[in-house]
Amino acid sequence: MGPDPDIPYITERLSSIKHKILVLSGKGGVGKSTLSVLLSHAFASSSRPAHPISTPNGNGNGHTSPSSIPLTVGLLDADITGPSIPKMLSLEQEPVHVTSTGWSPLYLTDTLCAISIQNMLPSNNPDTAIIWRGAKKTGLLKQFLRDVEWGDLDMLVVDTPPGTSDEHLALCTFMRDAGIDGAVLVSTPQEVALLDVRRQVDFCRKAGIPIIGIVENMSGFVCPNCTGESQIFRPTTGGARKLAKDEGIAFLGAVPLDPRIGMACDFGEDFLEAFPESKAGVALRGVVREVGKRIGLDVVDDDAE
């Protein structure tokens, strides 16, 4: 078989997006979609430094451009049979609109947009099961990349399903020429989760996807009342930090388990905006800075100023 004729169109469509990252985990239930949403919120509430430029005005004096420019972020829900991004962003009832230039992503704010199959179901019923074979799922992923009018974005975050199967291979094939900055791997501390993440590391290396680093999610439990911390999932073999050291990849940070994160996702709210000083919020912003540094994106945390 020859090369896919749609790949040049996908490459052209994604050319206006500066950075593209995949959020991966070989195991379900480690908070991959939650972390994708939190990272998207965090980047979308940040800025990148602007180079001051003095330009003359009518009086012969000069004015200086803004010191920072807000980051614009897109979130692609690539989990076709288990979409959860619309619920977490409170976009469940929003339909996808089709224009002459393609599908329009759903905008939560001026700097954050997303798209998911959930918003394309005829019944718009979140309880509807999506029973599709692999070819149909990869076909929809191609449409998401080829037909969605993302516009000029600083970052596209792709939330992938668990495993290393059809969707992951399709994303690698379709986005190869457009460029992928790398993958952020997500795990919890216990060895059962780390087993599958090791397989994901092997997949990334065989598929030629750079690994930005690994995040240890649910790393300890923080009580919202007494702020005490305890280990719910004890790292019996050293956790994600030890795995990162063994595999020679970056450890991006440890995000504690905070019940308010789950509540914020249930109600479609921004946890980082509601609880910016929480231990989980501080840890997440640390992850954002690490990711930005490793993909060459200077991040100015507007909420921290």
Rank of each mutant, 00 (worst) to 15 (best):
D202F: 03
V23H: 02
C113A: 10
D166V: 08
T188K: 11
E216R: 05
V287F: 05
P66Q: 06
D181P: 07
S36P: 00
S54K: 07
G102T: 08
A114D: 02
T173A: 04
T99A: 12
P122T: 11
T138K: 12
W103T: 02
I21N: 06
K20N: 04
N61S: 13
K279P: 13
H63R: 12
G74A: 12
D166A: 00
V158C: 07
T101W: 06
G213I: 07
S46H: 07
T55K: 14
E305P: 09
V73E: 08
F267V: 02
K242G: 01
G82A: 09
P52V: 01
G2K: 08
M155P: 09
T64Y: 04
L153D: 07
S187W: 00
S100D: 14
M1P: 09
E149Y: 07
S68M: 10
L153S: 09
N61I: 01
P49G: 03
G28P: 01
M263Q: 14
M155W: 06
G253K: 05
G182Y: 08
I209D: 06
H97M: 12
P224Q: 07
R241P: 00
G268W: 04
V299E: 05
F233G: 03
A50R: 13
I261L: 11
A207V: 10
A207Y: 03
T111I: 02
A304F: 06
P122K: 14
M120Y: 03
P56Q: 02
A183E: 08
I131G: 04
L156E: 03
Q93D: 13
V37D: 02
T11F: 06
V157G: 06
I117R: 01
A250M: 11
T227I: 08
T72D: 00
E269P: 14
E216M: 07
K27V: 06
I232P: 01
K206N: 11
G60E: 13
L91A: 13
I17D: 11
C226G: 11
F203D: 13
V30M: 07
G139K: 01
A44S: 15
L169C: 03
L112Y: 09
I209F: 10
T109Q: 05
D266N: 14
M263K: 12
V192P: 04
G134T: 12
S187V: 01
D266C: 13
A178R: 03
K279C: 10
K18R: 14
A244Y: 04
G228W: 07
G296N: 12
H41E: 10
V158D: 02
E94K: 12
I232D: 11
D301L: 15
